[in-house]
Protein backbone atom coordinates (compact mmCIF):
# COMPACT_ATOMS: atom_id res chain seq x y z
CA UNK A 1 0.00 0.00 0.00
CA UNK A 2 1.42 3.34 -0.95
CA UNK A 3 1.96 6.00 1.68
CA UNK A 4 -0.01 8.51 -0.28
CA UNK A 5 -3.32 6.75 0.27
CA UNK A 6 -3.97 6.49 3.96
CA UNK A 7 -7.69 7.08 3.75
CA UNK A 8 -9.60 3.85 3.32
CA UNK A 9 -12.75 4.56 1.36
CA UNK A 10 -15.91 3.13 2.86
CA UNK A 11 -17.46 0.30 0.89
CA UNK A 12 -21.05 -0.81 1.44
CA UNK A 13 -22.84 -3.76 -0.15
CA UNK A 14 -26.63 -3.73 -0.21
CA UNK A 15 -29.11 -6.41 -1.10
CA UNK A 16 -32.55 -6.04 -2.62
CA UNK A 17 -34.57 -8.75 -4.41
CA UNK A 18 -31.98 -11.19 -5.68
CA UNK A 19 -30.30 -14.56 -5.27
CA UNK A 20 -27.13 -13.30 -3.48
CA UNK A 21 -24.99 -14.55 -6.36
CA UNK A 22 -23.50 -11.17 -7.23
CA UNK A 23 -22.45 -10.50 -3.63
CA UNK A 24 -21.05 -13.98 -3.57
CA UNK A 25 -19.03 -13.16 -6.67
CA UNK A 26 -17.32 -10.53 -4.56
CA UNK A 27 -16.63 -13.08 -1.84
CA UNK A 28 -15.39 -15.39 -4.59
CA UNK A 29 -12.48 -13.05 -5.27
CA UNK A 30 -10.59 -15.27 -2.84
CA UNK A 31 -7.14 -14.12 -3.86
CA UNK A 32 -8.03 -10.46 -3.59
CA UNK A 33 -10.48 -10.40 -0.71
CA UNK A 34 -7.92 -9.60 1.94
CA UNK A 35 -6.35 -6.96 -0.29
CA UNK A 36 -9.77 -5.40 -0.80
CA UNK A 37 -10.28 -5.39 2.94
CA UNK A 38 -6.93 -3.63 3.29
CA UNK A 39 -7.69 -1.08 0.63
CA UNK A 40 -11.21 -0.20 1.71
CA UNK A 41 -13.17 -0.18 4.91
CA UNK A 42 -15.96 -2.71 4.50
CA UNK A 43 -18.49 -0.57 6.28
CA UNK A 44 -21.67 -2.49 5.51
CA UNK A 45 -21.82 -5.98 4.04
CA UNK A 46 -24.38 -8.10 5.87
CA UNK A 47 -23.52 -11.31 4.09
CA UNK A 48 -19.95 -11.07 5.37
CA UNK A 49 -19.96 -9.22 8.66
CA UNK A 50 -21.97 -8.25 11.75
CA UNK A 51 -19.99 -5.04 12.01
CA UNK A 52 -21.68 -2.00 10.56
CA UNK A 53 -20.50 1.53 10.42
CA UNK A 54 -22.65 4.46 9.54
CA UNK A 55 -22.66 6.29 6.25
CA UNK A 56 -21.94 8.21 4.22
CA UNK A 57 -20.30 5.56 2.08
CA UNK A 58 -17.81 6.25 -0.68
CA UNK A 59 -18.87 3.32 -2.81
CA UNK A 60 -22.14 1.43 -2.55
CA UNK A 61 -22.60 -1.79 -4.48
CA UNK A 62 -26.27 -2.59 -4.87
CA UNK A 63 -27.55 -6.07 -5.66
CA UNK A 64 -31.15 -6.90 -6.47
CA UNK A 65 -34.21 -5.28 -7.95
CA UNK A 66 -36.98 -3.22 -6.41
CA UNK A 67 -40.05 -5.37 -5.79
CA UNK A 68 -41.64 -4.02 -2.59
CA UNK A 69 -42.64 -0.60 -1.27
CA UNK A 70 -40.13 -1.10 1.56
CA UNK A 71 -37.35 -1.57 -0.97
CA UNK A 72 -38.42 1.58 -2.75
CA UNK A 73 -37.96 3.50 0.48
CA UNK A 74 -34.73 1.78 1.44
CA UNK A 75 -32.96 2.43 -1.87
CA UNK A 76 -33.55 6.16 -1.38
CA UNK A 77 -31.78 5.95 1.98
CA UNK A 78 -28.92 4.08 0.38
CA UNK A 79 -28.67 6.70 -2.37
CA UNK A 80 -28.67 9.51 0.17
CA UNK A 81 -25.76 7.94 2.00
CA UNK A 82 -23.68 6.98 -1.04
CA UNK A 83 -21.21 9.08 -2.94
CA UNK A 84 -20.90 6.59 -5.79
CA UNK A 85 -23.67 4.05 -6.30
CA UNK A 86 -23.03 1.09 -8.57
CA UNK A 87 -25.59 -1.60 -9.33
CA UNK A 88 -24.22 -5.12 -9.57
CA UNK A 89 -25.96 -7.67 -11.74
CA UNK A 90 -29.02 -8.20 -13.87
CA UNK A 91 -31.54 -7.78 -11.03
CA UNK A 92 -30.25 -4.37 -9.97
CA UNK A 93 -29.60 -3.26 -13.52
CA UNK A 94 -32.61 -4.63 -15.38
CA UNK A 95 -35.04 -6.13 -12.87
CA UNK A 96 -33.68 -9.68 -13.11
CA UNK A 97 -35.44 -12.95 -13.82
CA UNK A 98 -38.16 -11.97 -11.39
CA UNK A 99 -39.13 -9.21 -13.83
CA UNK A 100 -40.81 -11.94 -15.87
CA UNK A 101 -43.77 -11.27 -13.63
CA UNK A 102 -43.99 -7.81 -15.17
CA UNK A 103 -45.36 -9.44 -18.30
CA UNK A 104 -48.11 -11.27 -16.46
CA UNK A 105 -50.73 -10.44 -13.92
CA UNK A 106 -48.83 -10.15 -10.67
CA UNK A 107 -52.00 -10.68 -8.60
CA UNK A 108 -52.48 -13.95 -10.42
CA UNK A 109 -48.84 -14.83 -9.70
CA UNK A 110 -49.43 -14.34 -6.00
CA UNK A 111 -52.48 -16.57 -6.12
CA UNK A 112 -50.50 -19.20 -7.97
CA UNK A 113 -47.74 -19.39 -5.40
CA UNK A 114 -49.25 -18.31 -2.10
CA UNK A 115 -52.04 -19.61 0.04
CA UNK A 116 -52.80 -16.12 1.35
CA UNK A 117 -52.06 -13.66 -1.41
CA UNK A 118 -53.57 -10.84 0.64
CA UNK A 119 -50.50 -10.97 2.92
CA UNK A 120 -48.08 -10.41 0.12
CA UNK A 121 -47.10 -6.83 -0.15
CA UNK A 122 -45.22 -6.49 -3.36
CA UNK A 123 -45.14 -4.03 -6.19
CA UNK A 124 -46.74 -4.90 -9.49
CA UNK A 125 -43.35 -4.97 -11.14
CA UNK A 126 -39.76 -5.85 -10.48
CA UNK A 127 -37.75 -2.87 -11.63
CA UNK A 128 -34.11 -1.85 -11.84
CA UNK A 129 -32.53 0.40 -9.23
CA UNK A 130 -32.21 3.16 -11.81
CA UNK A 131 -36.00 3.45 -11.94
CA UNK A 132 -36.01 4.52 -8.31
CA UNK A 133 -32.83 6.56 -7.85
CA UNK A 134 -29.96 7.90 -9.98
CA UNK A 135 -27.25 5.29 -10.53
CA UNK A 136 -23.62 6.18 -11.22
CA UNK A 137 -22.62 2.98 -12.96
CA UNK A 138 -24.16 -0.36 -13.82
CA UNK A 139 -22.31 -3.65 -13.79
CA UNK A 140 -24.09 -6.22 -15.89
CA UNK A 141 -24.38 -9.95 -15.60
CA UNK A 142 -26.34 -12.80 -14.08
CA UNK A 143 -24.15 -13.04 -12.15
CA UNK A 144 -21.63 -10.23 -12.51
CA UNK A 145 -18.17 -11.29 -13.56
CA UNK A 146 -16.02 -11.20 -10.43
CA UNK A 147 -13.17 -9.76 -12.47
CA UNK A 148 -15.40 -6.85 -13.46
CA UNK A 149 -16.31 -6.18 -9.81
CA UNK A 150 -12.64 -6.17 -8.94
CA UNK A 151 -11.86 -3.96 -11.91
CA UNK A 152 -14.54 -1.50 -10.86
CA UNK A 153 -13.31 -1.30 -7.24
CA UNK A 154 -9.77 -1.08 -8.50
CA UNK A 155 -10.47 1.67 -10.99
CA UNK A 156 -12.48 3.60 -8.40
CA UNK A 157 -9.62 3.40 -5.89
CA UNK A 158 -7.04 4.41 -8.45
CA UNK A 159 -9.08 7.18 -9.96
CA UNK A 160 -9.14 5.79 -13.47
CA UNK A 161 -11.82 4.77 -15.93
CA UNK A 162 -12.86 1.16 -15.54
CA UNK A 163 -12.39 -1.19 -18.46
CA UNK A 164 -15.97 -2.32 -18.90
CA UNK A 165 -16.86 -2.79 -22.56
CA UNK A 166 -20.30 -2.06 -23.98
CA UNK A 167 -19.83 -3.87 -27.29
CA UNK A 168 -21.22 -7.26 -28.31
CA UNK A 169 -20.32 -10.59 -26.81
CA UNK A 170 -19.06 -11.68 -30.25
CA UNK A 171 -15.93 -9.63 -29.72
CA UNK A 172 -15.04 -11.70 -26.65
CA UNK A 173 -15.71 -14.97 -28.45
CA UNK A 174 -13.55 -14.00 -31.36
CA UNK A 175 -10.71 -12.69 -29.22
CA UNK A 176 -10.81 -15.92 -27.31
CA UNK A 177 -10.86 -17.97 -30.52
CA UNK A 178 -14.23 -19.59 -29.87
CA UNK A 179 -15.94 -20.96 -32.97
CA UNK A 180 -19.33 -19.29 -33.49
CA UNK A 181 -22.03 -21.74 -32.38
CA UNK A 182 -24.73 -20.07 -34.43
CA UNK A 183 -22.79 -20.28 -37.69
CA UNK A 184 -21.08 -23.64 -37.14
CA UNK A 185 -23.82 -25.47 -35.22
CA UNK A 186 -27.01 -23.62 -36.03
CA UNK A 187 -27.65 -22.83 -32.37
CA UNK A 188 -29.55 -19.64 -31.54
CA UNK A 189 -27.20 -17.30 -29.70
CA UNK A 190 -27.92 -13.89 -28.17
CA UNK A 191 -24.22 -12.99 -28.33
CA UNK A 192 -24.52 -10.49 -31.21
CA UNK A 193 -26.94 -8.33 -29.19
CA UNK A 194 -25.57 -9.01 -25.72
CA UNK A 195 -23.00 -6.93 -23.93
CA UNK A 196 -19.58 -8.50 -23.50
CA UNK A 197 -18.25 -9.11 -20.03
CA UNK A 198 -18.74 -12.75 -19.03
CA UNK A 199 -15.71 -13.87 -21.02
CA UNK A 200 -17.71 -15.60 -23.74
CA UNK A 201 -18.56 -18.60 -21.56
CA UNK A 202 -21.60 -20.14 -23.24
CA UNK A 203 -20.34 -20.46 -26.81
CA UNK A 204 -17.07 -21.85 -25.45
CA UNK A 205 -19.25 -24.44 -23.71
CA UNK A 206 -21.03 -25.26 -26.99
CA UNK A 207 -24.27 -23.47 -26.29
CA UNK A 208 -25.74 -20.19 -27.41
CA UNK A 209 -25.43 -17.11 -25.21
CA UNK A 210 -28.59 -16.58 -23.18
CA UNK A 211 -28.09 -12.93 -22.55
CA UNK A 212 -26.91 -12.69 -18.92
CA UNK A 213 -25.22 -9.38 -19.59
CA UNK A 214 -28.21 -7.69 -21.20
CA UNK A 215 -28.33 -5.69 -24.40
CA UNK A 216 -25.09 -4.32 -25.85
CA UNK A 217 -24.82 -0.83 -27.26
CA UNK A 218 -27.05 -0.43 -30.37
CA UNK A 219 -28.44 -3.97 -30.46
CA UNK A 220 -30.23 -4.98 -33.65
CA UNK A 221 -32.56 -7.42 -31.95
CA UNK A 222 -35.02 -7.54 -34.85
CA UNK A 223 -32.37 -8.80 -37.28
CA UNK A 224 -31.27 -11.44 -34.81
CA UNK A 225 -34.87 -12.51 -34.11
CA UNK A 226 -35.35 -12.91 -37.83
CA UNK A 227 -32.29 -15.12 -37.99
CA UNK A 228 -33.60 -17.18 -35.06
CA UNK A 229 -36.82 -17.78 -37.00
CA UNK A 230 -34.65 -18.89 -39.92
CA UNK A 231 -32.96 -21.40 -37.63
CA UNK A 232 -36.38 -22.87 -36.91
CA UNK A 233 -37.41 -21.18 -33.67
CA UNK A 234 -41.12 -20.69 -33.09
CA UNK A 235 -42.38 -17.22 -32.14
CA UNK A 236 -42.74 -18.46 -28.57
CA UNK A 237 -39.14 -19.63 -28.51
CA UNK A 238 -37.97 -16.29 -29.90
CA UNK A 239 -39.96 -14.49 -27.23
CA UNK A 240 -38.53 -16.62 -24.48
CA UNK A 241 -35.00 -16.15 -25.79
CA UNK A 242 -35.32 -12.39 -25.27
CA UNK A 243 -37.46 -12.65 -22.16
CA UNK A 244 -34.85 -14.26 -19.93
CA UNK A 245 -32.58 -12.88 -17.25
CA UNK A 246 -32.69 -9.36 -18.67
CA UNK A 247 -36.28 -9.44 -19.93
CA UNK A 248 -37.14 -5.97 -18.66
CA UNK A 249 -34.18 -4.31 -20.37
CA UNK A 250 -35.91 -2.26 -23.01
CA UNK A 251 -34.50 -3.72 -26.28
CA UNK A 252 -35.04 -7.29 -25.08
CA UNK A 253 -38.47 -6.53 -23.67
CA UNK A 254 -39.67 -4.93 -26.90
CA UNK A 255 -38.24 -7.62 -29.13
CA UNK A 256 -39.74 -10.41 -27.06
CA UNK A 257 -43.11 -8.67 -27.08
CA UNK A 258 -43.01 -8.61 -30.87
CA UNK A 259 -43.15 -12.40 -31.07
CA UNK A 260 -46.37 -13.94 -29.90
Amino acid sequence: MTESRRYRPKLAVWKFSSCDGCQLSLLSCEDDLLAINDAVEIAYFLEATRARSDGPYDLSLVEGSITTPEEERRIRDVRDQSRFLVTIGACATAGGIQALRNFGDSEEYKRAVYAHPEYIETLQRSTPISHAVPVDFELRGCPVNKHQILELINATLNGRKSNIPTHSECMECKRRGTVCVMVARGMPCLGPVTQAGCGGLCPATHRGCYGCFGPCVDPNTAALANQFAGLGLSPRQVRHAFHGFNAWAEPFRTEGDAHD
Binding site: A35, C170, V193
Partner: peptide, 24 residues
Amino acid sequence: LGCGNCTMVCPTCFCSTIEDTTDL
Protein backbone atom coordinates in the same frame (compact mmCIF):
# COMPACT_ATOMS: atom_id res chain seq x y z
CA LEU B 1 -26.12 -6.71 -36.10
CA GLY B 2 -23.15 -4.39 -35.63
CA CYS B 3 -21.58 -7.25 -33.72
CA GLY B 4 -18.14 -6.97 -35.33
CA ASN B 5 -17.77 -10.61 -36.34
CA CYS B 6 -16.82 -9.71 -39.92
CA THR B 7 -13.90 -7.63 -38.73
CA MET B 8 -12.74 -10.21 -36.20
CA VAL B 9 -12.56 -12.99 -38.80
CA CYS B 10 -11.12 -10.75 -41.53
CA PRO B 11 -7.46 -11.65 -42.07
CA THR B 12 -6.52 -8.05 -42.90
CA CYS B 13 -8.45 -6.12 -40.22
CA PHE B 14 -5.91 -4.69 -37.83
CA CYS B 15 -7.72 -2.34 -35.45
CA SER B 16 -6.90 -2.49 -31.79
CA THR B 17 -7.69 -0.68 -28.59
CA ILE B 18 -5.71 -0.08 -25.44
CA GLU B 19 -6.64 -1.15 -21.95
CA ASP B 20 -4.82 0.12 -18.89
CA THR B 21 -5.04 -1.89 -15.70
CA THR B 22 -3.72 -1.39 -12.18
CA ASP B 23 -3.58 -3.51 -9.08
CA LEU B 24 -5.57 -2.51 -6.00
